[in-house]
């Protein structure tokens, strides 16, 4: 979409010019580096195990996945709606979809940079002399991107829906946690069809049977893309609705 790239570039440069982003990046990298090294030591130097943990098998991974996107996206729309910049963008010759998509891509790009740490870890093994199994590593990276896409889209939706960044981040975080743990919660009870429905949005299950173990599955791929698209669609509708009132 025309203008998407422009918005994307601006948002990325804004992200990487703010100290918050770098702090988040450094903290996330330190955390995932720590879990990586810990698993490496625990498993007696197992290349596969440590890479798997760095790529989705650990709690730290999901914590970063939950916390980072809301913090990245919280200001993107809510703050601009407040200080009039959204009005500027919406009167520029770019479509609403391009605005939302550009911002989404920027947050996603940041996550992509963040998760490239898993590739770096694999590279470390390469340098040390134990060639890792690259295709699953790359597959895991793609999986991390897809999960990030889902949470970034959710964060952006929240940013569009709520007026202050703090509220938006809070709601996005709660929503992400809810989506992530709802299936586990529903699994405790016998809900029948409800359980099946919830299982259909089970991010962890989808992730675990695909990218975590080095499989790319079209259904899982589209699961993440479709839900991310759905949240983005809602975000665009909300931005459009901002014109109406």
């Amino acid at each position: 979409m025309k203008g998407t790239l422009t918005i994307f570039r601006r948002e990325v440069s804004a992200l990487f010019q703010s100290p918050l982003a770098w702090v988040l990046l450094a903290v996330s990298l330190a955390l995932s580096g720590w879990i990586f090294v810990a698993v490496l030591e625990e498993s007696g130097g197992s290349v596969k195990a440590s890479l798997a943990f760095a790529g989705g098998g650990s709690k730290v991974y999901w914590m970063i996945m939950l916390f980072l996107p809301p913090l990245l996206t919280m200001r993107m729309i809510s703050e601009e709606a407040r200080n009039g910049l959204l009005e500027f963008l919406l009167t520029a010759p770019v479509s609403d979809g391009a605005v939302v998509l550009g911002k989404f891509l920027a947050a996603w790009f940041f996550m992509a940079v963040m998760w490239s740490s898993s590739l770096v870890y694999a590279l470390v093994f390469e340098v040390v002399g134990s060639a890792p199994d690259w295709p699953p590593v790359v597959g895991g990276y793609i999986g991390a991107l897809l999960v990030s896409a889902l949470f970034c889209a959710l964060g952006l939706l929240s940013s569009a829906a709520f007026k202050t960044p703090a509220l938006s981040a809070f709601v996005a975080l709660s929503g992400s946690i809810g989506i992530l743990f709802l299936p586990a919660l529903a699994g405790l009870f016998e809900f029948g069809w409800l359980g099946d429905t919830v299982a259909a949005v089970d991010i962890l299950a989808h992730f675990h049977r695909s990218f975590l173990i080095g499989v790319v599955d079209s259904q899982v791929l589209l699961f993440f893309l479709a839900w991310a698209g759905f949240f983005l669609f809602l975000a665009v509708r909300i931005v459009e609705a901002k014109r109406w009132n």
Binding site: G3, R9, R10, A14, S18, N83, E87, F88, A92, P93
Partner: peptide, 29 residues
């Protein structure tokens, strides 16, 4: 075809003047 300046003068505070103009230029391709 319009140049619209809202009352709040919405500008990105974290950009330099010429960057802001560059952004507008890109928006207008």
């Amino acid at each position: 075809r319009i140049g619209y300046l809202a009352e709040t003068v919405p500008l990105y505070n974290d950009q330099r003047v010429e960057e802001m103009l560059g952004f507008q230029g890109q928006l207008h391709s």
